[in-house]
């Protein structure tokens, strides 16, 4: 059938080479795994119990490596800024994405569910898998659904820019308060008892920072998708 035409011989030989490589790696993985490998992550995971957050990955990402997360958010902001500068504001683009009655009804039905799931993932980031980045992108995908199905829908720019300013400023301000109180950037100055581990209000500043990250990522990703759908290139 058409499968033979789509897979030429170079593909098949490359596949065979990689499969033999993977088999060797897997043989090592499955049969002799050394039990006591010490990595940098283990040291951080041992420190996790001192902060009272159930999800160890969140502690590492937001708290021990919180400065890197600030840098990642800055990178996303610069990407959004560059896209907004590159695409012309006055030139409306017609992508010919036709929407119909069924898509509009179903997106009205689905949009609250997607937003609720995104907020759940964002707020429970310190208890279960998930967090700010994932929740923000889920919210942005809900807004992308609205942008595709309703042609006249627009992201409210004043609200989004206010949210983004608020989120970016409060991240830095919380970090500076930690610097004042505990002598290091992003110090955990709110009460974080280990006895509260697993509750929604636990972990001090860590859930607050993850919610801030979620707001910033969600607004930036929705602005990026709106720019890509509504505007045309300048050149």
């Amino acid at each position: 059938m058409s499968l033979k035409r789509d897979l030429p011989t170079s593909t098949i030989s490359g596949f065979a080479l990689s499969a033999s490589l993977i088999l060797t790696i897997l043989n090592i993985l499955l049969h002799n795994i050394p039990n006591n490998i010490q990595t940098a992550g283990d040291e951080l995971l041992k420190l996790n119990a001192t902060e009272g957050v159930a999800n160890a990955v969140t502690t590492v990402v937001v708290y021990f490596r919180g400065f890197d997360t600030l840098g990642e958010i800055a990178v996303l902001f610069i990407a959004s800024l560059g896209l907004g500068l590159m695409l012309d504001e006055n030139k409306q683009c017609d992508l010919k994405a036709k929407s119909n009655f069924m898509l509009q009804t179903a997106s009205k039905l689905l949009f609250p569910i997607i937003m609720l799931f995104g907020i759940y993932v964002m707020v429970y980031g310190h208890l279960s898998p998930g967090g700010g980045f994932q929740g923000g992108v889920i919210i942005a995908s809900g807004i992308l659904l609205l942008l595709i199905s309703f042609n006249e829908f627009e992201v409210p720019h004043s609200v989004v820019s206010l949210l983004e300013i608020f989120a970016g400023a409060s991240y830095v301000i919380i970090g500076l308060i930690g610097l004042l109180v505990l002598d290091r950037f992003l110090g955990n100055f709110l009460p974080n008892d280990i006895s509260n581990m697993g509750m929604l209000l636990s972990g001090g500043i860590i859930p607050i920072i993850y919610i801030i990250v979620g707001i910033k990522v969600g607004s930036e990703m929705s602005v990026i998708s709106e720019n890509l759908i509504k505007r045309c290139e300048d050149v």
């Binding site: 999800n55 990955v57 969140t58 993932v121 898998p129 998930g130 967090g131 980045f133 994932q134 992108v137 889920i138 942005a140 995908s141 992308l144 990703m221 998708s225």
Partner: peptide, 16 residues
């Protein structure tokens, strides 16, 4: 955590 990130970002919004 990485699986959720990959499902949302890697195969969801980036391909869109």
């Amino acid at each position: 955590d990485v699986a959720l990130t990959e499902a949302v970002i890697g195969s969801g919004i980036s391909s869109l």
